[in-house]
Simulated scan of single mutants.
Amino acid sequence: MAQGLAGNAADIDYHYDGAWQATPFPLTRPFPEWHLGLGTTYHESGTLWMGDNPQTSVTDSVGRFHHVSNAYVCDQSLFPTVGSVNPVLTGLTLAKQIAESL
């Protein structure tokens, strides 16, 4: 999917080890020790912005990309912030709302 959007695998960057990398996280490499403890997982959100202005937002108010035709986002990336420990139920509610609007 990412390669389809990027158009070329060489145009995809991955963020881990505190920097952008040209290759995905190696699946054969063990996760760091800090990743194993309870309460140390992260729920990234807010990586995309909803809004009416394509100059200041990535999607419109129903999660449709401004610059990619007929593609939608329906997950926590649209959240401005995470309001709880686990935002999955709120993300599912958002996905349901977007699906119903389609």
Rank of each mutant, 00 (worst) to 15 (best):
G37T: 12
V88H: 14
F65L: 04
G46N: 07
L78N: 02
V73L: 11
A71N: 07
H67A: 00
F79S: 08
H66G: 04
V68E: 04
P87A: 11
T41L: 10
P54T: 01
V85F: 13
M50I: 10
T40C: 11
M50E: 12
S77C: 04
Y72E: 04
L36P: 09
V88C: 11
P32H: 09
G63W: 00
V73H: 06
H67Y: 00
V62A: 05
D75N: 05
T56D: 05
C74K: 00
S45A: 15
H43W: 15
V68G: 03
R64D: 04
P80N: 13
L48Y: 06
L36N: 15
P32I: 06
G37Q: 15
V85C: 06
V68N: 07
V68Y: 08
D52G: 08
P87T: 03
L78I: 02
Y72G: 02
L78Q: 03
H66R: 00
N53K: 11
L48G: 02
V88L: 11
D75H: 00
P80E: 04
D60L: 01
S84Y: 11
M50C: 09
P87F: 14
D52R: 14
V88W: 07
F65R: 01
D52T: 09
V62N: 06
H35G: 08
D52P: 02
T56G: 06
T56L: 08
F79L: 10
A71G: 01
V85S: 06
T47P: 10
E44N: 14
V73T: 03
T59A: 09
F31Y: 04
G51K: 02
P87L: 11
T40L: 09
G39H: 03
Y42L: 15
N53W: 13
S69F: 00
